[in-house]
Design a binder for these strands. Structure first.
Length: 134
DNA sequence: GCCAACGTTGGC
DNA sequence: GCCAACGTTGGC
């Protein structure tokens, strides 16, 4: 089981929208590095959902329902199907991630433009730990 | 709204 | 194959 992080602009597609939709096709990825990570996703992998823009926080957890398949809009690229697992009890803001010694080597900070990225088990566990505090 | 940090495109 | 110009992302 692997862990990932995907970014979304909440004004465009938020985690709350995913909760109400029950599942969604995560498509439109047009970056080769991101595409390669998409193709590595397996059914059942967990995916942190990060809100960009004014939010800048990890907001919820989703899981991979269908591994990579050709993006219907452009079959050169790939898409996956995601379903919500749960909204984090409290979102973990970027500012917290930057200052947390267990999180400050996350790809999120090192490669801020990458929209699909791997997360280590210890990073994932730490995010969950922080989200349970108030 | 600005711009740094990328990624892509296309002329050479 | 190099790299200047351009486009995009996303934090500030």
């Amino acid at each position: 089981m692997n862990y990932w992080l995907v970014k979304t602009e909440p004004e465009t597609y938020s985690f709350d929208k995913l909760l109400s939709d029950k599942k969604t096709i995560w498509d439109g990825i047009r970056n080769y590095q991101a595409r390669n990570y998409l193709k590595d996703m397996k059914k059942g992998d967990w995916v942190l959902v990060y809100h960009t823009g004014s939010a800048k926080e990890i907001y919820g957890i989703a899981k991979v329902m269908k591994p990579a398949f050709p993006d219907p809009a452009d079959t050169e690229w790939f898409a996956i199907e995601l379903a919500p697992v749960q909204k984090l009890k409290s979102a973990v803001p970027l500012t917290k991630i930057k200052t947390d010694t267990k999180l400050n080597s996350m790809v999120l900070l090192k490669n801020s433009r990458l929209s699909v990225q791997p997360v280590t088990t210890s990073e994932f566990d730490r995010i969950i730990e922080l989200s349970e505090k108030h």
